[in-house]
């Protein structure tokens, strides 16, 4: 029985806009176990982004309980949240968010710069290892402008791995990529998941969900569906089925 990485209990989040109160999340409960690959789906306005912000410790719930790796987030200060993000979460964004004119290796090192327990040598070593894991061992010193979209996203994935997080949190990570490249990226995610890394993938594309082991569908701030996917598709196989590229 693997342990729960994420525990969410009756979580609510509301925003006050002028005189109106918007209920973005209306009492959500779920757990994520170690080694799961979960997609959180929902159309815009479903509370998906709010969910992502809270899962990523960028935002705090109005009420309810949120625990990540045994730490209750509710009472933490801004600085403590930053430390949680630094040590427990790996972020991947739709637009990669790499630092321009900065080499791949320096981009990957970034989270470790904010962790004073990691020495300069160890930082470099871990960044190289992370880049090798995503298949960019030969592009350590390329800057983002010298890399394709898929490669940039791989750098971002390496960056999310470098601090050995308990969970990778991806926000529409294939949204900016063509089908072929997004299958490549999904196949990489599956590979990482095989190695035991917990992944939470927020998306609105239904076909992405077929690659994950579990899907949570949000609608209007509540969970509409939460089901296990017993027939997980292999992204690598799908990639092989795609017609050969013209060039």
């Amino acid at each position: 029985m693997s342990k729960d990485i994420i525990k969410i209990e009756d979580l609510k989040r509301q925003f006050t806009m002028g005189t109106e109160t918007v209920h973005a999340l209306k009492g959500i409960s779920f757990n994520i176990k170690e080694g799961e690959f979960v997609t959180i789906m929902g159309s815009s306005g479903s509370g998906k982004s709010t969910m992502l912000n809270i899962l990523g410790c960028l935002d705090q719930p109005t009420s309810g309980e949120y625990e990540i790796d045994g730490v209750s987030v509710k009472a933490l200060s801004r600085n403590e949240l930053a430390t949680i993000r630094n040590e427990k979460i790996g972020f991947i964004f739709q637009s990669y968010n790499l630092l321009a004119r900065t080499s791949a290796i320096e981009n990957v090192e970034l989270p470790l710069l904010y962790n004073s327990k990691v020495s300069t040598e160890e930082r470099r070593e871990r960044a190289i290892k992370a880049l090798e894991m995503v298949g960019l061992g030969d592009r350590l010193h390329h800057t983002p402008s010298q890399l394709s979209g898929g490669q940039q996203q791989r750098v971002a994935i390496a960056r999310s791995l470098v601090n050995n997080p308990v969970m990778i949190l991806a926000d529409e990570a294939t949204g900016n990529l063509d089908t072929r490249t997004s299958y490549e990226i999904m196949s990489l995610f599956q590979e990482l998941n095989q190695k035991g890394i917990t992944i939470t993938f927020v998306t609105h594309e239904p076909d992405i969900a077929t690659f994950s082991s579990r899907t949570i569908v949000l609608k209007d701030g509540s969970i509409m569906q939460d089901y296990k996917n017993h027939k997980v598709q292999s992204a690598a196989e799908q990639l092989a089925k795609l017609p050969k590229q013209d060039d």
Binding site: G56, L58, R78, N79, A82, T83, R85, N86, E87, F91, F93, N97, L99, L110, P111, Y114, N115, R159, N163
Partner: peptide, 16 residues
Amino acid sequence: TKEIGLRMAVGGKGSD
């Protein structure tokens, strides 16, 4: 601004 957001997301504190 976006870079600052990223730095914060990966663990940069306000003081950093």
